[in-house]
Amino acid sequence: MKNISELQLKNDRPGIFTIYKKHWPLLLMLLPGFAALVLFNYVPMFGILIAFKDYKFMKGIIGSEWVGMEHFITLFSQQNFGHVITNTLWISIMKLIFGFPMPIILALLLNELRGQKFKNAVQTCTYLPHFFSWVVLAGIFKMVFANAGPVNELLKILGMDSADFFGNGGLFRGLVVGTAVWQGAGWGAIVYLAALSGVDETLYEAATIDGAGRLRQVFCISIPSIIPTIITVFILNLGNVLNAGYDQIYNMYNPTVYEVADIIDTYVLRALSAMDYGVGTAAELFKSIIGFILVMAANKLTNKMSDNELGIM
């Protein structure tokens, strides 16, 4: 009797080694990636300790003295730090609000184009800005949006006041968000275009036969079929919410707009010495933790709303 029940138990919940034995090919597929993650991502993470230490190279990270939360206190007690956080959040949230839907819209619009050659040409053009560094782009923007530049000429023709894009705080923020959205749209659209190409063509045919218009097809077929991709990309983007785009701001910024454009990274680099590794690491860790919390929360919410269908983990 006892034997039988044990046997049954074994049958209901197979031992871990039985599972491994059965699914070893899948585990083998995970192995190279897992090894790379451990070797190149997890091993260097001992460096996070620097955030809590007075790092002296000669003593090594382990040998350096603990300073507890001192670096975090230095970071948070900086004059203007609250201001800097507000700027960072403002810029990155705006980038998320406008920059996240833009690639989706672009992909859907491109998907509606009929001529394949034209579509390919437009698509190729839109992803070009991804290949230019912000140094190059910032140089071009400074020319295009200058006070005597083409954009202001256009405003003049339209009878509007000229706009000081690099001197006026509000306009500068708009310019930062706008150019970031513009730069990322074409590149970001690629992943959605890939997802759209996976949509079963017969669905569109059936819809046409049923008399559904193009707009209806977009909302009833195209969008629902890329929803998983949209949600995945959104959750992944949330992790970056405290990275407002150092490279972009650093290249476009000038002292007249520092009040609205100073973000955590530019501030840490300028106000604290670039060589203060402890505070620098503390700032990075702070950003990582906030990003991690947001990703986890968004993931949980998505899982709850979609019956564990759409979350990333």
């Binding site: 091993v43 260097p44 993470m45 001992f46 300790l49 090594g60 382990i62 040998g63």
Partner: peptide
């Protein structure tokens, strides 16, 4: 745990 274990390894390695 993984993170800690790998940190230990790295710390041991980087001492020299």
């Amino acid at each position: 745990a993984i993170l800690l274990a790998s940190s230990m390894l790295a710390a041991a390695l980087s001492g020299c």
